[in-house]
């Protein structure tokens, strides 16, 4: 970059002092090359400015969820297993997998882990209170998280005065080893994780809440697309 171009760049960046800027202004009247450079700079900057996108509305929720999962402490009894899996977890992080923490049981499918973590973070609903016997009413915006190699679409609902989480997966979520099938042998199952009941009515749908299993199953029948 020669001195001339350096002066031009400084002029365009507004970094010349008043006297130098005035001199350069006068120079532009007589120098076709510099004037063309100024026009091209302004056109290029205006074109690039048109690429200013707004972030997707759910990206902040998604990022917060991913960081929240990564921050969860791991019970000491699982440390050995975690260390053994450490190299794999690091590799998974590099290729964009999110659900690394294991808040439920270490053998749980990632979707179960993500749903339990999201249920533990249910926010207090805002707006008009929803009386018992009514609902379901969605509260908050739905968002998407990664769970293993799949994605989950999550949405909080309030019905009969309690909050539940509904999750739709883009693939079968898997079944925990200790799932309770009701009736035995049928698809629907429930499982308890740290006081959170997770109910799976279909292989790509999960419902979760801090409720007894029988009450959650009853409420789940009233949720949309379930």
């Amino acid at each position: 970059m020669d001195r001339h171009e350096r002066s031009l760049a400084a002029f365009l960046a507004g970094e010349l002092d008043e006297r130098s800027a005035a001199e350069f202004d006068a120079h532009l009247l007589d120098c076709a090359d510099c004037w063309r450079a100024v026009r091209e700079d302004r056109a290029g900057r205006a074109a690039a400015a048109r690429l200013r996108d707004a972030a997707p509305y759910d990206l902040a929720d998604r990022v917060s969820m991913a960081v929240g999962l990564a921050a969860r402490p791991r019970p000491a009894r699982r440390r050995g297993r975690w260390l053994a899996a450490g190299a794999l977890a690091v590799a998974a992080a590099v290729i964009g997998l999110v659900v690394l923490a294991l808040p439920g049981r270490s053998a749980d499918p990632p979707a179960i882990t993500a749903v339990v973590a999201a249920t533990q973070r249910i926010p207090v609903p805002t707006g008009q209170p929803i009386p018992p016997g009514t609902g379901p009413v969605a509260h908050g915006q739905g968002w998407t998280v990664r769970a293993g190699v799949g994605e989950l679409r999550l949405q909080y609902y309030r019905l009969d005065g309690v909050d539940v989480l509904l999750a739709h997966a883009d693939r079968p979520v898997g079944t925990p080893e200790d799932a309770q099938h009701a009736p035995p042998g049928d698809m629907p199952w429930t499982v308890d994780r740290d006081g959170i009941t997770v109910y799976c009515p279909h292989d790509d749908v999960l419902v979760a809440a801090a409720l007894p299993a029988d009450r959650l199953v009853a409420l789940a029948q009233r949720l949309p697309a379930n």
Binding site: M1, E5, R6, L8, A9, A10, L12, A13, E15, A37, R39, E40, D41, R42, A43, G44, R45, A47, A48
Partner: peptide, 20 residues
């Protein structure tokens, strides 16, 4: 920062030329 000023100026010009 001088390098940044030079690069952004050249980048904008080249962008304008490519778009033209």
């Amino acid at each position: 920062r001088g390098t940044v000023l030079a690069r952004v100026h050249r980048g904008r010009r080249k962008l304008a030329v490519l778009l033209a």
